[in-house]
Design a protein around this nucleic acid. Structure first.
Lengths: 113, 113
DNA sequence: GCATAATCTGCAAGTCTTTGTAGATATGCA
DNA sequence: TGCATATCTACAAAGACTTGCAGATTATGC
């Protein structure tokens, strides 16, 4: 029993780290490959500081990896399959979302794949 | 762009709902089929009130469904595939977990499949 | 009807998360 | 060196989540 509890705790940590709209978009954006903080901030339309804070969390959890090129910090997914796993979760959004979201879901599924 | 933001928000909600050790164990337990609150509380070693609160969240999000049989409330997964999707996330625990967890992970993977 | 069993809901305290602001660090270049 | 750029970290306020407890609800069987 303690095994299950321990593993469930770790797994919950991973879910918690992903459970933020900015971080989900961030991870899906990194699917397109390595990118620096400022470009990400522009693409996601978020304040760079906020993005940096998100990246710092994901970095600590080894969900993303960092490498420096001059004064830029380039980030990439440590395990690119995570992006796919996250979009697989859309199946469970469908069930609870109002029918009005079906169109958005189709569009986003196309973008994130 | 607003599509992505909207969908990311919904998806983050789903992640947030799952991001709790009790709720993860609960969902994996329901893989074994419909069960009432008290039995679940015993199997998971949690106070029934707490379990009921978790179930109430998952029910509102249509992750579980309820049916009554006398005074018992029987719960089941609305979409049983969610249990499998959750355990797929173990791949991303492995990367950040210390090597000492490898054994636990193997055991739990066997239990939850 | 009443006592009991199974579960739910509302509330309050403690804790954790998010986010902006301000200031710190590191790099490149004149 | 001195200044600009890119990013990071620290901190505090606001908000959200978790949990136990007390009391409400619903169903059963006498």
């Amino acid at each position: 029993m303690p095994h299950r509890v321990h593993v469930a705790r770790e797994l919950a940590e991973v879910f918690k780290l992903i459970a933020h709209p900015d971080r989900i978009r961030l991870i899906e954006e990194l699917r397109n490959g390595e990118c620096d903080v400022n470009s990400l901030a522009l693409r996601l339309d978020l304040p760079p500081t906020r993005l940096s804070q998100h990246l710092s969390l994901l970095r600590a959890a080894r969900i993303v990896e960092e490498r420096r090129n001059g004064r830029q910090h380039l980030y990439r997914l440590a395990q690119p399959q995570i992006a796919r796993w996250i979009t697989d979760g859309l199946a469970f959004v469908e069930a609870r979302a109002p029918a009005s979201m079906a169109g958005d879901l189709r569009e986003v599924r196309a973008l994130w794949s």
